[in-house]
Design a protein around this nucleic acid. Structure first.
Lengths: 239, 239
DNA sequence: CAACAACGAGAGCAGTGCTCTTGCTTTTGA
DNA sequence: TCAAAAGCAAGAGCACTGCTCTCGTTGTTG
């Protein structure tokens, strides 16, 4: 299925990867705004025009980086989940696993701030994300949903109260993302999802500068509260 | 103090405003990335080089727009607070006023998505915001703090539980932003602040597309929960 | 082995941010 | 009052960008 057929194809894969690597390097160094195709080509020792054989435009290169970034955070979240599940002597309560997943996302963001900015920064209105991105973009969300679903099946959920005006919407969302969950958790879940990234974004983008010092503790505390808001019962001493 | 001394000074003010207006227009049309000094100058019928008498660089123009945007959203929050205070026959509970302020910020963001992206999008690490921005940037936060402070004085607060490992940090933050409040609310307030903008950012940046429909209701619900998380007691029927 | 498709390189176009120089106009101070 | 100083607009120009087109070259395939 993925057998490489010849030298040409093999070279294409390698060059494509080299371009993305160099682009990522420039992204980390100067930010997305200053990422330049010509500079990438220069650094790779090739003509700038040759680069267009691999990515038809600068936006396409950026899109590829976006997809990779989504995949990277998604994988970070997934391995965090898997690791938490495998804890000994027994896995921690689901609320703690939620915090672990959230913490992994935060760690990834701290380690790759520019890539984080690329995907959760300013996907300006008017530029609608290409279809390629929607799959990878949902991986983190999927981990969170899966966590809630498993917690529901195993321990049950402290289903949050649902405002009357949100009932229809709750059922719509639930049908969309998790038909087997009580509808009331659906709005709480999307809200918690957004708020999680609000916490991370504020930290990454420097809004906490000269104000919050113990950022990890603050984040863990807030993430724990969010876990409760979606119905997860935490360990009593969790904080 | 602000008397205009001559034709030259008056002209300078007008031209500066015209440049910012045109820049804002381009910002709204194409986004910050495509904002071009030459295009602004062209549209204003002046030489591009002349523009540098008013803004020494493109980044300075952007900074000016950032300051204006911070001021605009700050003013939106402040008037929302003032309006809520003036409600008849009597002002609503503080939790509802909190939601009103949050809603005003959201409304402003929806009306000015590109300017919102400018200030809460990707202030990339490495680019530290100039000093001019820190004042205006804190206006929204000030409104939220003031709200909590007044609520504390009038009704008292349901002080949220404080994790032991956050005690020192809580006192630090409280001393910084609101020495007269119980330290335990400080971390909750900072977190709620970040989470509020997480909700708004996800909506503005399209992360809710094809998923959440009743966005205002969801936002009001979540904002109400955040009000509770900082200790505000809401009206029992509040949604 | 010949036809074909993929490729790399170079020249070139239109656009950008920014600088420097050249004249002109307003403000200022002796 | 009137010359010096300071502020201003405009043009040319530099180095850079994304992107296109053309022209040889090289790997693939019937």
């Amino acid at each position: 299925m993925s057998t490489i057929r010849g030298a040409r194809e093999r070279a294409r894969i390698e060059v494509t990867a080299a371009i993305k690597d160099e682009a990522r390097k420039q992204l980390a160094a100067e930010g997305a705004a200053k990422l330049s195709l010509r500079a990438v080509a220069r650094e790779l020792g090739m003509a700038s025009s040759a680069l267009y054989r691999y990515f038809p435009s600068r936006d396409d290169l950026l899109t590829a980086l976006i997809v990779d970034a989504y995949d990277a955070v998604g994988e970070a979240a997934e391995t965090a989940r898997a690791t938490a599940d495998r804890a000994r002597p027994r896995p921690a309560p689901y609320a703690d696993r939620w915090v672990a997943v959230a913490g992994a996302v935060r760690e990834w963001a701290l380690a790759h701030p520019h890539e984080y900015a690329l995907i959760y920064g300013s996907p300006v209105p008017g530029y609608s994300a290409p279809m390629d991105t929607v799959g990878p973009a949902s991986r983190v969300g999927m981990v969170l949903i899966g966590l809630i679903r498993d917690a529901f099946r195993e321990d049950g959920l402290a289903v949050p109260p649902l405002a009357a005006e949100l009932r229809a919407e709750a059922e719509r969302i639930a049908a969309d993302i998790a038909p087997d969950l009580p509808p009331a958790v659906a709005p709480a879940l999307v809200a918690a999802w957004a708020q999680l990234f609000g916490l991370i974004s504020f930290e990454i983008f420097g809004q906490f500068n000269r104000m919050v010092e113990a950022r990890e503790q603050l984040f863990r505390q807030a993430a724990g509260e969010l876990a409760r808001s979606v119905g997860l019962r935490g360990s009593p001493a969790a904080g």
